[in-house]
């Protein structure tokens, strides 16, 4: 039902989010709204089918997914990744990467300080060498360290 609800909300947004062309409308076969409407309608119908299909067919409800239902603890790595991405602007990609590796390795149960330390320095170092030095790609330096790297 969540899928159907989201699809219906998006369908309601179509008129405001897809504007009709001002020029050249006669040269096209269908409106730019057509394909999003088709896709979202399909999603809404299929979402409803998934929700009420087993009941209509008088079958047992669909079994739990093989992977099991989402667990609340997954919010920890998701939160960590969000914090990692948010911190890049402030402290730069290299330092943020080191901190992210440390936190994730600890979160995943790695308690070997040497392994964590090596990973947290070698990986960001390699990224900096390969991307910033060799490939000349701009990597965010962070407002705190602007101009230093």
């Amino acid at each position: 039902m969540v899928a159907t609800a989201i699809s219906l909300v998006m369908l309601a947004l179509v008129p405001s989010q897809v504007l009709e062309p001002k020029f050249g409308a006669r040269s096209i076969a269908f409106s730019p709204k057509t394909m999003p409407v088709i896709a979202l309608t399909l999603m809404a119908i299929l979402g409803a089918l998934m929700a009420i299909g087993p009941a209509l067919a008088r079958q047992d409800p669909e079994p739990s997914p093989p992977e099991g239902l989402p667990q609340i603890r997954v919010l920890l790595p998701i939160g960590l990744m969000v914090a990692f991405v948010a911190s890049i602007d402030q402290i730069g990609l290299v330092l943020a990467s080191g901190l992210c590796i440390t936190a994730l390795a600890y979160l995943f149960g790695n308690r070997n300080a040497w392994v964590i330390a090596i990973l947290a320095t070698a990986v960001p170092g390699a990224i900096w060498l390969i991307f910033a030095r060799s490939l000349r790609i701009f990597l965010p330096e962070g407002r705190l360290f602007e101009g230093l790297l």
Binding site: M81, I101, N110, L139
Partner: peptide, 17 residues
Amino acid sequence: QVVFPVVAVLCVVGAFA
């Protein structure tokens, strides 16, 4: 436990690059 933290950083660098 060693591989996935590295994967996390590579995901961000890959998407940014």
